[in-house]
Design a protein around this nucleic acid. Sequence first.
DNA 1: TTTAGTTACGTAAACGTTTAAGTAATCCTA
DNA 2: TAGGATTACTTAAACGTTTACGTAACTAAA
Lengths: 336, 336
Amino acid sequence: MNPPTIKDVAKAADVSVATVSRVLHNLAGYSNMTKQKVMRAVEELGYQPNAIARGLVNKRTQTIGVLFPDVSSSFSSDILHGIEEIAQEKGFSVIVCNTAEEGKRTMKYLQVLREKQVDGIVFTSEVLKDEYYQAIKEMRVPVILVNTMTPKYMIPYVKVDDRQAAYHATDYLIQKGHREIAMISGTLKDQIAGFPRLDGYRQALADNGIEYTESRVAYGDFVLEGSRKAMKKLLAEAPPFTALFAASDEMAIGAMSVAMEHGLKIPDDLSIIGYDDLKLARMIYPPLTTIHQPLTMMGRMASEKLITLIEEGSTQVSSSIVSHHLVERQTVRSKP
Amino acid sequence: MNPPTIKDVAKAADVSVATVSRVLHNLAGYSNMTKQKVMRAVEELGYQPNAIARGLVNKRTQTIGVLFPDVSSSFSSDILHGIEEIAQEKGFSVIVCNTAEEGKRTMKYLQVLREKQVDGIVFTSEVLKDEYYQAIKEMRVPVILVNTMTPKYMIPYVKVDDRQAAYHATDYLIQKGHREIAMISGTLKDQIAGFPRLDGYRQALADNGIEYTESRVAYGDFVLEGSRKAMKKLLAEAPPFTALFAASDEMAIGAMSVAMEHGLKIPDDLSIIGYDDLKLARMIYPPLTTIHQPLTMMGRMASEKLITLIEEGSTQVSSSIVSHHLVERQTVRSKP
DNA sequence: TTTAGTTACGTAAACGTTTAAGTAATCCTA
DNA sequence: TAGGATTACTTAAACGTTTACGTAACTAAA
């Protein structure tokens, strides 16, 4: 009736449960004949071990929790993909947590993950508040930050150098001959993806002897709608510009569409470079030149690091700055 | 040292574990004073219940497993988003499983889910092979199919009527005055999203007295690259056409880009309608007219149904055909 | 004042594993 | 051929809960 347990197997094979457990784990201490008996019983009963019971005694669940501000974003799901891939390879399951805007559900989810006894946590794309840090510390499991970081605590992270990548993007535009370069930035309050990217842009201008013009930067919120508004403002109010750096692909695409609606040709009338290299950057027309963040790989790395921490016990933490690269497609044009 | 258990709380409050358990669950059988004592002890020790131990005795883990062929697709992640939302609301966690191409890992994952004692499963976007069905049946937990179905077994599903939606898309093109309508179909072997959509297209043509021209349909594999090839073939070999129905947004976008590369203007020279209404349909330029599948809502419905099945025990199964709708954007134009 | 009923607990078994410790038989080795 | 070492097991505790059952004290009705 009920699913067979190890006890049923033991009874059927006429041995003790300890013996069954040992043959199932390939430990020593039984004859070949008993092994046969046990295997046969397992087969006949269709026995499957119960990971919950196992977890209780081992204090290990082979499960990790992953927190995203928005699971359904292309961004998050690429990271998730990488995390899941390595996790499953190493025998871990992943519980996904959508913390929603403003991390409204973060604390609740941390609580759930604690009760469920996950072995580790990946925390992505959001700033790690003190409150979160305390909660995680209390649960005594390793954490890895992806696409975010904190200077305040020693927590390993995996991310690209946003400032440097933004510098790269802007410098590329300059090398292509552009000098009037606008930017659509994320919100400045965002210490991770907002300020550093703007700063990189500024630095690139400065290093090339181009004056920074405040009215040429507008602020979006990393997603489409905000960017469309920002672009309209730029088109209406900013001094003319021949190129645009958008701090996310989604914003680049929003800007592109309003540019096209204004009758501008891309890249002939306006060059645009994005940031992220989401799958859709390749799909739109013309395909978007952008800064590639290896999201899936970052997910893989985070997963790998986390599982190492889980299995070796907290050895030293090591963060990774992964390198971005610029992928040239068709939205940037050399200025003669 | 170790995290406090219910025993520690009991000791600290000077009562039995049974009493602690009772106050924690708001059951009857204790005085107000003991309640205070227990609560204080819980507070002071920072006690958190262990869901693993609880799961062992209750035979309930408050966890569901969700299988996707590709978690990182926009399609899957929208569904996941809906599933997660309801799950968390109802106190369930979700384990994501990426079954990879060809369901290579499906069996392995079903095994994991079984060992981990999930309370239910949602199976998405893939055909449910007999092998899978047997495995799930053996684990005696409810399943819900999303975006797929099987006539062979009584398993509740949530999906749109692909045939009807394809009919709708095609008919819309016809109402707009088009009569030379090409199609980029998924592979015919796909009994879920392949054949039915082609069939809907055919039926719409027939009902409007338009002859079906085999050479006007090309086959992609639902994703970008295949579609680009298909579109090139169509442009080169098919009799001229003024409109195109693509069986997925991704294919529509692929087709759009090759059309644009050929110098065709959309929608002036060619009208295109897609299928799915992925987020990016709205983002590209011009925004894609397409069939909207309410993916997030489908995820929510599936989650809701599944949890009902889990909590009420298998009552009757009920499937849902959810209604698609056509969203008019800017890639279809009336033919004068 | 007895008795039945209720309240407020405590005891202990159960969930399905893993594993340390124990035991009996067999095998070497000197 | 006695002694220790090895092999092939078994027993039972432990993991952290929930919950059926037992029981003592108190309450209320007759």
